[in-house]
Nucleic acid binder design. Structure first.
Length: 644
RNA sequence: GCCGUUGUAGCUCAGUGGUAGAGCACUUCCUUGGUAAGGAAGAGGUCUGGGGUUCAAUUCCCCAUAACGGCUCCA
């Protein structure tokens, strides 16, 4: 007999060799039907695994992340089975579960799968699933495994086998399909009730762009059709929030073939948002002791040789223009320009920390395939600043910057983000990273300490640092689930030296300052793209391009509406009159769709009483009030930068 | 940059080997209407660009370009 302990703390005796599935059946048939896999002593295993020692057991169902991942991984095998039946001779690489679903990478030789084939594959998968094929696990010797795939002519699996030891190799077979796989898998294919193949794409073998490109088919599956329908509905909803769609509908930005890819045109409504964000930044930075500067969009090659950017990042810069034998580059970053402002005057420790801020315009030649709405562009406006400080001041300055981040995130109600401490990889010193091993360790420790002391949750990732130092990136997700760095806060112990930046310390010696690069609001492009999705286009009043729309019931009341409008405009409120010859229902509908926060309706009653009728976007009629009342409501809400 | 898909009116999209259509938006007129779409008329397109096949190409083929879905990249 062995003792099995359950998540609720219960411990029960069972015969040695019993499987989690058998245990589930002992509890209830209903549970057994739902069991996908089992976590035995914290390890995810097949539900059929015999347990021979005392163990802790958690039966995994669709409701567990590990359960879902197993379900999707098995679905990838089912996809492979369907593909093999449809495209003979196909060779498979790997087919893991991902955040939402799964994929399988394959080499189809001369054949291609197009999106129109996906429906047929779905049908085939469905047909195979309904056979309730059991996933059979088999331990196999390395030599047998090699000869199996050698005969099949599958060099990809042979490559996988190279990295595996005898004794740890297992095959899984369901129906006609056998795969090299460590598992675990769901009990049988019949659990997969709803299947959707979402897309087909190219993917480099082993993620290396020098390797052959394989075909990747993405899909998602569910235990019930209802859940698939809900998932598809959710995707539809996400699409409505997509900043590319909203940006067009709300007149925020546009792209034009004659301007160029990745070069957004900011329309009047978008420009208002830009200006409001800049006002916020200026106000916040001035209060925090920053000084504003302005620098040109281009600079000579020599500047980027000094900074060290050119050898590292030339490919990401627009090619130079040559004038009188001198090469000029469009700036891809503002830091070298700011360093030159630092060095333009002699500096004393009394001048530090010196904080230079600029909403700098940068141009980056991003790869064409990477451009993505406003989130990844080639012309960007960075909420940039560089803080030059002594080592002693570093922690205080770095903490103040982090506090500014948090303050901003509170204003915008940003809750879903991850702070990522990006470190260097010692193996890449001198290539990807400045070759200063001790300084790396020292500054990384300084940053980590600040984060811990400020109680900011963060994750550490190796090999993500800037070439001049470690950084903190704030990661966010777009409506369609793509991850982006929204903002960044970087330490730089290299450029000060490269630019020969110096200040005179108390002992009358020259010292090189540490530099903090920071951009809490990221770039206008990415930040506004993010805000569009974050607010689903319903900006808070202070950011709304149009804050108030006056809606006269008929043109008889246009004059009164215009006079109210004048008062609002004079109070600095962005207000417009809808004087079209439309009915009030139509005017309200159009204004609602444009997501204008306040509608003021004006008819006979209002003109007589000298009032307006207030309607808040999405909330309906809020009753009558006087013009002075609504004025003070609006101005208060705007100046507080109140969120909705 | 690579693989795949797509490109028709300002927007969303039908459609066809014989030079094009809907809804919304726009203009004008009628309607003067009280909290999410009143009615009528009109204007608007080198069917992304360039080549090819064909008596004839928006439609079929090739190239370019842009967007989209991924991969790779991301100071």
């Amino acid at each position: 007999m062995i003792n099995i302990s359950f998540p609720d703390g219960a411990v029960r005796p069972y015969d040695s060799g019993i499987s989690p599935m058998a245990i589930a059946k002992g509890i209830s048939e209903g549970l057994a039907k739902k069991v996908i896999a089992a976590s035995i002593n914290g390890q995810v295993k097949d539900a059929s695994t015999p347990i021979t020692n005392d163990a802790s057991l958690k039966l995994l169902t669709w409701d567990d992340t590990d359960g879902r991942n197993t379900f999707w991984h098995s679905s990838a095998h089912l996809l492979a089975e369907a593909v093999e039946a449809t495209f003979p001779g196909v060779k498979f690489w790997v087919g893991p579960a991902v955040d939402r679903g799964f994929y399988y990478d394959m080499d189809l030789g001369d054949q291609t799968i197009s999106e129109s084939d996906l429906l047929a594959l779905e049908k085939k998968m469905d047909e195979l699933a309904r056979k309730n094929s059991v996933f059979i696990r088999k331990e196999i010797s390395k030599s047998d495994a090699v000869s199996y795939f050698f005969e099949k002519g599958d060099e990809y699996k042979l490559d996988l086998l190279k990295g595996l030891q005898d004794g740890e190799i297992t095959f899984y077979t369901q129906g006609e399909f056998t795969d090299l796989c460590r598992g675990p898998h769901i009990p049988h294919t019949g659990l997969i009730k709803a299947i959707k193949l979402t897309s087909v794409a190219g993917a480099y073998w082993k993620g290396d762009e020098n390797n052959k490109q394989l075909t990747r088919v993405y899909g998602i599956t569910f235990p019930t059709q209802k859940e698939l329908d809900e998932h598809l509905l959710m995707l539809e909803e996400a699409k409505k929030r997509d900043h590319r769609k909203l940006g067009k509908e709300l007149g925020i930005f546009t792209f034009d073939d004659d301007i160029g890819p990745g070069l957004p045109l900011w329309m009047p409504n978008g420009t208002i948002i830009i200006e409001e964000l800049e006002n916020l930044a200026k106000q916040t930075e001035t209060a925090a002791g920053y000084k504003r500067v302005v620098t040109p969009h281009i600079a000579k090659e020599s500047l980027y040789l000094t900074s060290g950017h050119l050898p590292y990042y030339q490919e990401s810069m627009y090619p130079p223009m040559e004038l009188e034998g001198v090469k000029y580059y469009l700036k891809a970053m503002n830091c070298p320009h700011h360093h030159k402002i630092f060095s333009a005057e002699s500096r004393s420790y009394k001048d530090l920390p010196l904080r230079l801020a600029e909403y700098g315009t940068c141009y980056r030649y991003e790869q064409s395939g990477e451009l993505f709405g406003l989130m990844r562009v080639r012309c960007l406006h960075m909420n940039d600043a560089h803080i030059y400080c002594s080592k002693d001041d570093f922690a205080k300055e770095f903490r103040a910057v982090n506090e500014m981040y948090i303050k901003y995130f509170k204003i915008f109600g940003i809750e879903k983000y991850v702070m990522r401490l990006s470190l260097h990889d010692p193996a890449k010193l001198g290539q990807k990273y400045i070759d200063e091993p001790e300084l790396w360790i020292e500054t990384e420790n300084m940053v980590r300490k600040v984060l811990i002391e400020s109680n900011i949750p963060f994750v550490e990732v190796p090999d993500e640092g800037a070439f001049y130092g470690p950084k903190i990136d704030v990661q966010i997700w777009s409506a369609i689930g793509r991850e982006f760095t929204l903002a960044t806060n970087q330490v730089d112990f290299a450029q000060g030296k490269r630019f020969g930046l110096e200040y005179t310390n108390k002992d009358n010696h020259a010292e090189t300052p540490l530099i903090i690069h920071r951009a809490p609001l990221g770039t206008h492009e990415r930040f506004i793209g993010f805000l569009l999705e974050h607010y689903a286009g319903k900006f808070p009043l202070w950011l709304s391009p149009v804050q108030v729309k006056l809606l006269p019931i008929s043109d008889k009341f246009n004059d009164y509406a215009l006079s109210v409008n004048k008062q609002l405009l004079e109070a600095g409120i962005r207000s417009e009159v809808d004087d079209r010859g439309e009915k009030i229902g139509k005017k309200i509908r159009d204004t609602e769709l444009m997501k204008v926060p306040y509608m003021l309706i004006i008819g006979e009653k209002e003109v007589t009483d000298g009032t307006v009728s207030v309607r808040r976007q999405g909330k309906g009629d809020a009753g009558q009030c006087s013009v002075s009342e609504i004025l003070s409501t609006l101005t208060a809400e705007i100046s507080n930068r109140q969120s909705n």
